[in-house]
Each structure stands twice: as structure tokens, then as C-alpha cells.
Amino acid sequence: MKKLSRITLIFILLAHCGISSIGYAREPGYIDQILNTAKLQGSGRLTWWGLHIYDANFYRAGSFNSPEFALHLQYHKSLSGLAIANRSAEEMSKLGVPETQAQSWGKQLATFLPNVEPGQSLTAIYNPKQGTTFYFDGKPLAQIAGADFSKAFFGIWLDSKTTAPKLREQLLGQYCPPPLLEETCKQ
């Protein structure tokens, strides 16, 4: 009985500490449907001053060379939609997007991004023909057409100049970023 209790305790501790990643790598069904067989390219965690903000999963459609992809953020902190929009605009500016354009896109994001609570998710899916479509807990929110916005928005996580290089490395894994980012890459 003691042996079983120790094993159970170890399992519970490992699961509680997030060491088990089996459930973490599963894509939500809607991503798989939209991307027509999504493949997880990488996953990571964003922390800020030691606070766990969200877990991020980066998916590609069919293969790791696909131009279609999704970024799924599972939140662990409560944040207002306005704060998310403003931070997105700030990050775009840091990547070299002109301030006026970044602010304009930030205002556009603020019109539809909801407040998030722990356990809720926001997903952005890119399709070259449609642009970026946003989802809140799997339900469509809005779509922003055009590659310029998509490049700036996804660049927050995937551009080589991101302010979160460790997370970028985790999301891309051993594969290249999507062609949208126009980065030369050898696989």
C-alpha cells in the first residue's frame, strides 16, 4: 500500500507541476478542421516577471512547410481585451511597424478582443487567401484581411526580432517559420 501511495503521489505532483505534456499538445478540434489536419510544430509558455501568462501552441496545416498556420493561446491570467490589443500594438511597433499603423491595428483589435479569464483561449489562424481569423474559445470573433497585418501580428511571436526569443524557439522547434515572415531558412 505504501508503494502505491508513493507512485500515486509522484504522478499527482508531476501532473500538477505541468511536467506531463500529453494533454498540452492536443489541438482543439476546430483548429484541426480549419487547417485540414493540423500538426503541432511547437509549444511554449509566456511568463512575465515570474507570472505564468499563457501557454502557446503553434500549428501548421498538413506539413511544417505549409503557409497556413494557427497560434493558440491558453490563458492563465485574467486580462482585458483592451490590454491585449494595446500590448499587441506595442509589440508590433517594436518589430518596426510604423507607430501610426500599429496603433490603428491595435484599435481594430480592441473592437473585438474579449476579456479573458484563466482557462479561456484566443486563437489566430492564418490563411493566405483570407488573412487572419480570430477565435475565442473556438468561436469565430473577427477576420482581418491582408498579409501586412498578419505578418505584423504573428511576428509578435515568430519574427526573429520578437521580444520573447525563448518562446519563439519553442514554437518553431526545429522547423522554419511560415513563408509569411519571409525569413530564409534551411531545414
Rank of each mutant, 00 (worst) to 15 (best):
G81I: 03
G81V: 00
G81P: 01
L82K: 14
L82V: 11
L82W: 10
A83R: 10
A83P: 09
A83F: 04
A85N: 07
N86A: 10
R87I: 00
R87H: 12
R87C: 01
S88F: 13
S88K: 05
A89Y: 04
A89F: 02
E91I: 03
M92V: 00
M92L: 04
S93G: 13
S93Q: 14
K94A: 12
L95M: 06
G96H: 04
G96C: 07
G96M: 05
P98H: 09
E99H: 14
E99R: 13
T100R: 10
T100I: 15
T100H: 10
T100Q: 15
Q101F: 04
Q101C: 09
A102W: 01
Q103H: 13
Q103A: 14
Q103C: 03
Q103Y: 12
Q103I: 11
S104M: 13
G106N: 02
Q108C: 07
L109V: 09
A110F: 04
A110L: 06
T111Y: 06
T111K: 14
T111P: 06
F112R: 05
F112K: 07
L113D: 12
L113H: 09
P114K: 11
P114R: 11
P114L: 03
P114Y: 05
V116Q: 05
V116E: 02
E117W: 12
E117Q: 15
P118Y: 04
P118K: 09
P118C: 12
G119M: 13
G119Y: 10
Q120H: 04
L122D: 06
L122I: 15
T123K: 01
A124T: 15
A124P: 08
N127A: 10
N127Y: 00
N127F: 06
P128N: 08
P128S: 08
P128R: 06
P128L: 06
P128C: 09
K129Q: 15
K129N: 15
K129R: 15
Q130W: 00
Q130F: 03
Q130K: 15
Q130E: 13
G131T: 11
G131F: 08
G131I: 11
T132A: 15
F134S: 13
F134W: 08
Y135G: 07
Y135N: 08
Y135P: 02
F136S: 10
F136R: 00
D137P: 02
D137R: 10
G138V: 07
G138N: 11
P140I: 10
L141V: 08
L141I: 11
L141D: 06
A142W: 05
Q143I: 09
I144E: 06
I144N: 09
A145S: 15
G146L: 05
A147I: 00
D148V: 12
D148A: 14
F149D: 04
F149H: 02
S150C: 09
K151E: 12
K151F: 11
A152I: 12
A152T: 09
A152L: 04
F153M: 00
F153V: 07
F153K: 01
F154M: 07
F154H: 02
G155W: 03
G155C: 04
I156V: 13
W157F: 09
L158P: 01
D159S: 14
D159M: 03
S160D: 10
S160N: 12
K161H: 12
K161M: 00
K161N: 10
T163Y: 01
T163F: 00
T163I: 07
P165F: 15
P165A: 14
